[in-house]
Design a protein around this nucleic acid. Sequence first.
DNA 1: TTGTACGCGTTATCAA
DNA 2: TTGATAACGCGTACAA
Lengths: 338, 338
Amino acid sequence: MKGGEIMENLKERVTIYEVAKASGVSLATVSRVMNNSGTVSEETKRKVLSIIKKLGYKPSGLAQALATNKTTNIGVIIPSANYVYIANMLNGITEVCKKNGFTVILYTTSHSREDALNCLERVIKSHVDGVIVFDDELDGEDLEVFNSYSVPVIDVNNRIVASKIGCIPFGYEHLMKRIIEENFVKGDKKMTFLHVHNAGRLLSRVENQFIKVHLENDREYNIMNCDDSYQRTYQDFMERFKQKRKEYIIAYRDSIAAAVLNAATDSGLRVPEDIEVLSIIGTKYSSILRPQISNLHINFQEVGKRAMYMLIDLINGTLIEKEYKFESEYIKKDSTFF
Amino acid sequence: MKGGEIMENLKERVTIYEVAKASGVSLATVSRVMNNSGTVSEETKRKVLSIIKKLGYKPSGLAQALATNKTTNIGVIIPSANYVYIANMLNGITEVCKKNGFTVILYTTSHSREDALNCLERVIKSHVDGVIVFDDELDGEDLEVFNSYSVPVIDVNNRIVASKIGCIPFGYEHLMKRIIEENFVKGDKKMTFLHVHNAGRLLSRVENQFIKVHLENDREYNIMNCDDSYQRTYQDFMERFKQKRKEYIIAYRDSIAAAVLNAATDSGLRVPEDIEVLSIIGTKYSSILRPQISNLHINFQEVGKRAMYMLIDLINGTLIEKEYKFESEYIKKDSTFF
DNA sequence: TTGTACGCGTTATCAA
DNA sequence: TTGATAACGCGTACAA
């Protein structure tokens, strides 16, 4: 053995052929043993199994997928795993995946159209058995593209239905209307909606509803631009709260709501007497933060699980109801009066 | 056309053969066009490209992977995406992946040895080009198994090095010692370490260090069993704080620390005068919660990025330093005195 | 019960 | 500049 020779024990991947040879049978028999298909005599089965174990043979998922046209992989497209509610959904998906023998391939879009189209390409190339989309960069037409490559789709947070598309829309409108009108009747504060640039359809829909309900009731309202960052929002509100106004503020999610609350508290304003805050997307942090934040709750872990269940049915062609709506629930905490 | 016929426009996947036929060239030429390899005349190139576009041809990643022995997929093994710091790491990984043309396959183990071994199997079957492991269920021997199937590994939170294994250990011990001893000198409270059953090596190591430093200094300490859940811990401490004792409590992560803090506040105890709390793993919530939580900070997004950079180098055989340590940093906030 | 041979959709090596 | 053709590792009719 020469000096410079590579000594790594990268034993080459053992294939079905080698198992067959070592067992003295054909590769078809090995395949049968692996998949418990066809009929194999107990004796050869034992022998083959022992060889498989001895050689440490693991079938190549690639070759299997190519031969069977099934990968048992599903794609998940999300903007980022960094938001708690999205991580919760992801967790629900993986849970159901594991129980059903699927594996998750993760695609993130970082809020960019370019990334999104890139994902689309890669998802199609990857031969996933199906895909769950929770991403505003992808619209109905994009989802049709998946379908045209016969990739079943479950679209979360939309209402797009087609032959191989199911959807899980969220119901925030009714509840939003109820809360706003309750504030008109019992409350005394003008409402401010925190508008986040490019934050997606979910927030836009709620914002539109916010405006609509105000117009219907002939009430004044504020829309305020807001960064999707705790620090920046905190600073903005420290500035804003120098004038000790009373306000009812609606924020996208817990961190943003917390920024407002902390700024209020740090400015000597009382919650909820002076400042009321509502978080649209509530997570467990709504209850951990003090004061606890009132929020419109949807269990995103359950959303993820449901999405995956629906996708499995869609893949198997047994999905009856292509739409499953999640209604939000009002969790009244300390940051609001009613 | 009969009535019951299926009308779905699931156009079958178009293959390289069909493109070749439609272009009047051989599949080899199409392959060359796709990969910009070899030499193709401008004219046929144009023709082939137009056909590719027209037919919407996307090469099969499966077949490519089988032929080239490269998937451009990497595996990520984590206990769950539900913890903020893990989600942060995941985010760092995906970011670097995207820039370098890799795709993440996600494997979660749900804190079970069985799941972990299952992951091991699936990772090997899936032909990933490499794997990042941040999971206590998998030990050094398991990682060697990856290696024996020539799957490069980056192991986070451990110090295991081998031919195709790199690692990213965390440095908590020194800082822990410094903080504890500072408390001995300047502080006046007995320290309590929250022991979480089966929470993994990271916490165990810190706990051992906690005990060691106390023994070295001949000081008394408490170890207290604690659930890895906000609610349960909150209740436990509401009970405990009925006796208005003074304590310095060390918790695993923000949520748990918050449970202690909230219980203290709700029991009429002052922070940090009566109760001091330190969170070992700090996230952005350390600064959002009130009082803000002192913590031992490691930027997990950076950990994820670094892990992926190292993995890429390992795959390419260009990784020089197989170990890259992340030292924790003490972020002094309002929940402690020093 | 077992083996042969073909197909899955690519890449890559030769010749032509 | 192109086109056959052999891998890649497996599943699976069909034949034996």
